[in-house]
Simulated scan of single mutants.
Amino acid sequence: MICRSRAGRRAGAVVLVLAAAGCTEHNALGTIEYTTPGKRVVKIQSPSDEDCHRMPGGAHSVVNYTVDDIRLYTNADCVLTKAGDDQSGQTGGESFYLGTQMSVEFTPGQDPWLSYSVVGGGG
């Protein structure tokens, strides 16, 4: 009887651990580093891959040291406008797709990036 009880508790504990693991928030493992127009360097560790992340002060250059790609936006809400749909991936457009382990620098006349979202897949 004691062996069955212990085995049942162990099996129940394994089920709980697996269920909890399935409900955890996923993160883009690594660091996103950006430089503000005022030359301040900001580092963000393992951001959530489910949210829109604002970049206070804006960003003129961004380095993506995470395992996931990110999309940079020139607005604070991670929203593409109709104009941005055609300009996706173009520096100075409404958004910019930045691959993992890649960087992008400011282009004169461009608005600073104000937010980013994680595309996902690697974390």
Rank of each mutant, 00 (worst) to 15 (best):
Y34R: 07
T36I: 07
P37T: 12
P37R: 09
P37Q: 05
R40L: 11
V42G: 08
K43R: 15
K43L: 14
I44S: 04
I44L: 14
Q45E: 14
Q45V: 10
S46T: 09
P47F: 09
P47M: 01
D49K: 09
D51S: 08
C52R: 13
H53R: 05
R54D: 03
M55S: 00
P56S: 07
G58Y: 04
H60R: 15
H60V: 14
H60Q: 10
H60M: 12
N64C: 08
N64R: 11
Y65L: 12
T66L: 12
T66K: 02
V67K: 10
I70S: 02
Y73V: 05
T74A: 14
N75K: 09
A76T: 10
A76W: 08
D77Y: 06
D77S: 12
C78Y: 01
C78W: 05
C78H: 00
V79A: 08
V79E: 07
L80S: 07
L80E: 15
L80D: 12
K82C: 11
A83Q: 10
G84M: 01
D85W: 08
D85I: 12
D86E: 13
D86R: 15
D86V: 04
S88K: 11
T91G: 14
T91E: 13
G92W: 14
G92I: 11
G93H: 10
G93A: 03
S95D: 15
F96S: 00
F96N: 00
Y97S: 13
G99K: 00
T100S: 15
T100V: 04
Q101K: 12
Q101V: 03
Q101D: 11
